[in-house]
């Protein structure tokens, strides 16, 4: 079972959390100028890496706040959690 460190509440059981998928997806500015391809890329296309991944989590049964986590999608090990708006600990990686 996971123990997940909420940046506000500390270590809690995984059943208190929900995963909300890939983090750091910026909503494009001037969406009315987007082509269908660009819009589809923003809405639907995902990285889905095998290995290190950055995701949004919600502490649903706790403080009800979102945060980001860096997690390995093969070992499922969480290497870091950080608040929304903070830089990921490993530096900005595309």
């Amino acid at each position: 079972m996971f123990l997940i460190e909420c940046p506000w509440c500390g270590m809690r059981d995984e059943t208190e959390f929900s995963c909300f998928g890939e983090a750091h997806i910026a909503r494009p500015l001037e969406t009315e100028k987007l082509s269908d391809e660009e819009w589809a890329d923003y809405l639907f296309m995902r990285k889905n890496p095998k290995g290190a991944h950055r995701e949004q989590w919600l502490h649903a049964a706790g403080c009800r706040r979102y945060f980001n986590a860096e997690r390995d999608t093969v070992s499922y090990q969480i290497s870091a959690t950080y608040k929304i708006g903070e830089k990921p600990p490993g530096g900005s990686r595309k």
């Binding site: 079972m1 996971f2 995984e14 059943t15 929900s18 995963c19 998928g21 889905n48 095998k50 991944h53 995701e55 997690r71 999608t73 093969v74 070992s75 499922y76």
Partner: peptide
């Protein structure tokens, strides 16, 4: 399981 995973195993809950 709600999170992405390639590990061929999931959570007990």
């Amino acid at each position: 399981d709600s999170y992405n995973g390639y590990g061929q195993r999931g959570s007990f809950p």
